[in-house]
Amino acid sequence: MAMPRVRANGLEIEYEETGSPDNPMILLVSGYMGQMTEWPDRFKQALADAGRRVIVFDNRDIGLTTAVDDPALEDCIPPPMEELMQGAAEGEPVHERVPYVLDDMAADAAALIEALGAEQADVLGLSMGGMIVQLMALNHPDRVRALIPVMTTSGDPALPPAQPEALEALTAEPESETLEAIGDLAVRTYHAIGSHPDLRASDNELRAAAMADVQRANRPLGLARQFAALLAQPRWHDRLETIGKPTLVLHGQMDRLIPPDCGRDIARRIPGADFRAIEKWGHDLPEAVVPDLLDEILPFLARI
């Protein structure tokens, strides 16, 4: 089924809306590689039933969102990951060597709020999306009412790194370009970074979701540029103390890709922020964790 599009910040952004357009907006921002299809219907509907206008969308370079004004986004190959990582570690201005950084993706999301006719929104972001919503609160504070960073980090390079097997799983490539190989890789990836088996989706569900996403949109260069944006983003952790928005930080106790201490650091730096850790939850968004998330998010939204 075709979804609506709106033009914002030089992009044609594919989005989906749940709930009444008269309600306050909550914008859900996906993570690296995540299309808007990753958000469980049950989660979106529960937020809508709680009185929110729920917006999900495809970030730039992923899914069905396309560039309008910047042809470089369509064909630019970013520098190799190793070069960017080394340059960043040595303090080089690597942000000047990539097509865009997370600041630009935060500007996209802020422009989307305005393009959809809202003054501001509660913003919830997963993983890379959690970094983006922090930058929205820093760079576009008038567009943010409340902040919910999920399974993410303050960006402080002194924080604990990903476990090697988790990072390897995130950056692995399928053995071939077949749907079956892509599905098999998704299963291996979420066994490495995902939740305890009590919460994690079944292998068949993981495989089917990955195959459906690549059939919807297969944009490997976009994924490379998104990863480059992650690596090249100038650090922002030392600015978080300036955020004056109600903030709830959520993290999984079993997150092996972005350890829970990274979420705790966000909450420590933002004045008045709350931190909640969920047992058996890893770096994924299975249906089984939705009730735990809603138990934290809905009371927070009601308070603000």
Rank of each mutant, 00 (worst) to 15 (best):
M3N: 14
V6R: 13
V6I: 14
Y15G: 03
Y15Q: 02
E16N: 12
E17Q: 15
S20T: 10
P21I: 12
P24D: 08
M25V: 09
L27F: 05
S30P: 07
G31Q: 08
M36S: 12
T37A: 14
W39P: 01
P40A: 12
P40R: 12
A46P: 12
L47A: 10
A48E: 05
D49I: 03
D49M: 05
V56Q: 05
D58H: 09
D58K: 09
N59T: 07
R60S: 03
D61T: 03
I62M: 13
L64T: 04
T66C: 02
A67E: 11
A67V: 11
A67I: 01
V68L: 15
P71W: 06
L73P: 00
C76M: 14
I77Y: 04
P79I: 01
P80M: 06
M81A: 13
E83I: 10
E83H: 09
G87Y: 08
A88C: 00
A89M: 14
G91H: 12
G91M: 05
V94S: 06
Y100C: 02
D104W: 04
A107Y: 01
D108R: 10
D108T: 10
A110T: 09
A111V: 04
I113Y: 05
I113C: 08
A115T: 06
L116P: 11
L116K: 09
G117L: 08
A118T: 09
G125L: 06
G125E: 04
L135P: 05
A137V: 11
H140V: 07
V144H: 04
V144S: 08
V144R: 06
T152N: 01
G155E: 06
P157R: 08
P157L: 07
P157M: 06
P160L: 01
P164G: 06
E165L: 08
E168H: 09
E168S: 13
A169I: 00
E173C: 00
P174R: 09
S176P: 05
A181Y: 06
I182W: 02
D184N: 13
D184Q: 15
A186H: 07
A186R: 14
V187H: 09
H196E: 11
H196W: 04
S202E: 05
D203E: 15
D203A: 13
E205F: 10
A209F: 13
M211F: 00
A212K: 14
A212N: 12
D213M: 13
D213P: 00
R216V: 02
A217R: 04
R219Y: 04
Q226K: 03
Q233K: 03
R235T: 12
E241V: 09
T242S: 15
I243S: 07
G244K: 15
R256I: 00
P259K: 05
C262Q: 15
I266D: 00
I270M: 05
A273F: 04
K280N: 13
G282M: 08
H283E: 03
D284N: 10
L285A: 11
A288N: 10
P291A: 06
L293G: 03
L301W: 06
I304L: 13
